[in-house]
């Protein structure tokens, strides 16, 4: 079709009308057409495009088998370009992780030293580290031994290896949570929605044993059982531990673990953007200054 249109229009363009001088023959323009004609053409274009768009949209039907909810955008108070993470929320989220998530999920890339001055004092972080037993060694006799954790130690792994984790969870591997937020579409929104989104399966969907229905999880059935309930833990700062509060705090905490440089990054953004703006203005001034001589002259050439 394009070929036909192209051919006919090319022929039309090539046909030089005798009344117009040769110079103007090469252009196609709407300038000379009447207003009514212009409106008619524009309307025809809009109707055609809209019609095609509507047809495409109607063709994309929703299939019941692929029902998957996408998380809504929640107004996280750290999502702005210059907004820092809420440290109290991160701290609460840490305790939620420690008391709920850490039973199954590892966090292999976090060290206790990362907590210091992020949301804990050094003494608190040392006390947190000392709560876990870390395998160290070999000692003088060549044996491995257990000792209380230190700041230089990683978070403990609930399972010795992935196989043990699968065996304990009906074949499903609980993912490492350190970088889970950037690793999932929707980030914190997805984590929050998943944690609070457990519900009974709708009619027509049968959920097998040992798996659970969650509309936010791709595929709808998830190996993880609902983990967060109201008042499942108690916050030490007295915040009511509702399910959504727990989910919000742990999502914020997981954002922090995936990006412990989050606040520094945004602080650097302030500096970088303002310096570059200043430099841009100055560069523009200097360019005009240098080009004035060239720009403010007129050259005419004689035949």
């Amino acid at each position: 079709m394009a070929a036909i249109v192209g051919r006919s229009s090319r022929q039309a363009l090539l046909r030089a009308r005798s009344s117009i001088s040769c110079q103007n023959a090469g252009f196609v323009t709407f300038k000379n057409q009447s207003t009514g004609r212009k409106i008619a053409l524009a309307a025809a274009g809009i109707v055609t495009t809209g019609g095609i768009g509507l047809a495409v949209a109607l063709n994309q039907s929703v299939l019941a088998g692929e029902l998957e909810l996408h998380p809504p955008k929640y107004p996280w108070n750290h999502s702005g370009y210059l907004d820092a993470l809420d440290v109290t929320s991160v701290r609460r989220g840490y305790f939620v992780y420690k008391q709920v998530c850490a039973a199954c999920h590892s966090m292999n890339y976090m060290y206790y030293r990362n907590l210091v001055d992020a949301f804990m004092t050094e003494d608190e972080a040392k006390a947190e580290a000392a709560e876990v037993q870390v395998v160290d060694g070999p000692d003088e006799e060549g044996k491995m031994f257990e000792r209380p954790g230190k700041l230089a130690d990683k978070f403990p792994n609930p399972y010795a290896n992935p196989e043990a984790a699968r065996a304990a969870n009906n074949g499903a591997l609980p993912p490492d949570l350190t970088f889970i937020v950037p690793a999932r579409h929707g980030g914190e929104d997805y984590i929050f929605s998943l944690l609070t989104g457990y519900c009974d399966p709708p009619a027509g969907i049968t959920v097998k044993e040992d798996v659970h229905y969650n509309p936010y999880f791709p595929g709808g059935t998830i190996g993880m059982a609902q983990a967060l309930y109201n008042e499942i833990i108690e916050y030490d700062d007295g915040t009511p531990a509702t399910q959504s509060q727990l989910a919000k705090d742990v999502s914020t905490f997981l954002r922090w673990t995936s990006e412990i440089e989050h606040d520094t990054r945004k602080k650097t953004a302030i500096k970088t953007l303002s310096i570059l703006t200043l430099l841009m203005v100055i560069t523009y001034y200097f360019k005009r200054h240098r080009w004035t001589v060239l720009k403010s002259r007129k050259l005419t050439s004689q035949k």
Partner: peptide
Amino acid sequence: SNYAFDYINRGKLYKDVKDKF
């Protein structure tokens, strides 16, 4: 710029809530 960042995020940073902990 540090002051600006601290002002935008007052109450959310570790140094603001450290004393509470």
